[in-house]
Design a protein around this nucleic acid. Structure first.
Length: 467
RNA sequence: GGCGCGGUACCCAAGCGGCUAAGGGAGAGGUCUGCAAAACCUCGAUUCGUCGGUUCGAGUCCGACCCGCGCCUCCA
């Protein structure tokens, strides 16, 4: 049984999908006004782990991720450059898709864009007006919290107390009550707008997710994810809008990812203490090492980004890569049935521990513990020359199975070297045969500068890339 | 002020009342090697922020306190 911590109940619950064997997953996507920072990607990688594990467990997952391509920031950005909204967001949408590809985040089934679903949002706002949950004020439409008594059930925020510590109200629109939120913003001069049945204007941020999630997944669906900072107000508002409109439960399981912090401080655009994926790629960081780093701490725990921690993650991942390399390339004896049996038992246990750990609210540390335990046990046999080829293949199959969830092993094509480096390696081998160790060492040093480590083993030289 | 999270070895990090407190990094010792590097093996916390309490038994439950962090209408 798979169990998740559900923000709604504040408890770990058994996961039961609405329909057996399949489920709907909605994850809050990027607002495309800038390049996402790696904190954003922590959430997307957590969601990727969740999705891959659910698929691994046999579920058919329908995944929807929205793209917010109209909001205050995108409008401001487009205006500043004097380009259309579409032209402005196009660049960041493309960047987002490039990024998730290099981070090995499996694409969603649908990426609905806010600007392409205005009709759905208007229909919903109209319905909320008809049912008395929303009201017009100066051409804008607001949701009335007074009409929705359940408000606050996700964030555990008491709406009477909302004012106490609240920040200064900066919204320039007039509302009946300070804590009502906007569904539809009246058109402002020089800003993009849509001519609709509820007047000219543009949607508020929250209605976008309510309209697009239910459009693709139905009025009630299984899992909704996002960053912890979306709990209030975004997800709370989504619940209010959707449940008021449909008159039924919106989402069964709410899973929220904790923040990535930098040196103990929250990484955010407004503080300026953030890194984008591009920043790290420019520093020769391998994106899959970043994936491993972001993946390897439990999603509900705050994760501290430092280059030292990233380096630890790199080294950790390298251990698994080296292990797989060893199993694939070592010459091993063909037969030894009894040992294959005991290796199968060991491997089966590791696989079971791996699954059980992830089923327990995605306990990745424990799951990786199972992987490393297997690595050590098998390495130990390898060191004693007690591993047969068939047994090694059993282990390899299991590791690749686990990598369907982790996606951290190198791809085959990454294992190819440029011709000039292959020549250098051969030159060094020649020098070593001639006992010209000075030359051999200088070539080794030269390649090291380029991030290629040479290892002299009993079977001959082998190389690997670092960085 | 309200709501919530965390404090486990030098660093990261599991653990959810009971077997020797996972695992990774760094470090030390060893194997291999022309020497190295890399890789591999072995080792490593009588102790879990502090003080009390509950219990036959507590890192794990309860209470108080100390420290760090987040949210309370931009935020993954």
């Amino acid at each position: 049984m798979i169990r998740f911590y559900n923000t709604l109940s504040g408890k770990i619950e058994d996961f039961r999908p609405l329909r057996p064997g399949e489920l709907g997953l909605y994850t809050c996507g990027p607002t495309v006004y800038d390049y996402p920072h790696i904190g954003n990607y922590r959430a997307y990688i957590f969601e990727d782990l969740l999705k891959r594990f659910l698929i691994f467990s046999g579920f058919k997952v329908t995944h929807v991720m929205n793209i917010t391509d109209v909001d205050d920031k995108t409008i401001k950005g487009a205006k500043a450059l004097g380009v259309s909204l579409n032209e402005y967001t196009k660049k960041y949408i493309e960047a987002f898709f490039e990024d998730i590809k290099v981070l090995r985040i499996q694409p969603a089934d649908h990426y609905p864009r806010a600007t392409e679903h205005i009709e759905d949002m208007v229909r919903m706002i109209k319905g909320l007006l008809d049912k008395g949950y929303a009201y017009f004020k100066d051409g804008s439409v607001y949701f009335s919290l007074a009409k929705f008594p359940d408000y606050g059930k996700l964030s555990k925020i008491n709406k009477e107390e909302l004012r106490a510590g609240a920040r200064v109200e900066t919204d320039e629109y007039e509302k009946e009550s300070v804590y009502d939120f906007v569904l539809w913003k009246k058109v402002k001069p020089g800003e993009p707008y849509w001519e609709t049945e509820i007047g000219p204007g543009r949607p508020g941020w929250h209605i976008e997710c309510s309209a697009m999630s239910t459009r693709y997944l139905g009025p009630t669906f299984d899992i909704h994810c996002g960053g912890i900072d979306n709990i209030f107000p975004h997800h709370e508002n989504e619940i209010a809008q959707s449940e008021a409109y449909y008159g039924q439960k919106f989402v069964n399981y709410w899973l929220h990812c904790h923040h990535l912090v930098v040196d103990g401080e929250k990484m955010s655009k407004s503080k300026g203490n953030f890194f984008t994926l591009r920043d790290l790629l420019a520093r020769q960081i391998n994106p899959v090492d970043l994936r491993y780093f972001l993946l390897s701490t439990h999603y509900r725990k705050m994760l501290n980004f430092t280059f030292d921690n990233l380096e630890q993650a790199r080294a950790s991942r390298q251990r698994i890569i080296d292990f797989v390399y060893e199993l694939e390339h070592q010459m091993l004896p063909q037969k030894s049935e009894s040992q294959t049996d005991s290796v199968s038992t060991m491997t089966g246990k590791a696989l079971a521990d791996f699954k059980d750990s992830l089923a327990d609210d995605l306990n990745i540390s424990s799951a990786l513990g199972a992987v490393f335990e297997l690595v050590r046990e098998i390495n130990s046999r390898l060191a004693r020359n007690e591993l047969s080829r068939p047994a090694a293949n059993v282990v390899l199959t299991a590791i690749h199975e686990m990598d369907k969830v982790l996606a951290i092993l190198p791809e085959k094509k990454e294992e190819e070297l440029p011709a000039e480096i292959v020549i250098k390696i051969e030159q060094r081998e020649q020098a070593r045969r001639e006992k010209n160790f000075a030359l051999a060492d200088s070539i080794r040093q030269e390649l090291l500068q380029q991030g290629i480590v040479l290892e002299d083993t009993r079977e001959g030289v082998r190389w690997k890339k670092i960085k």
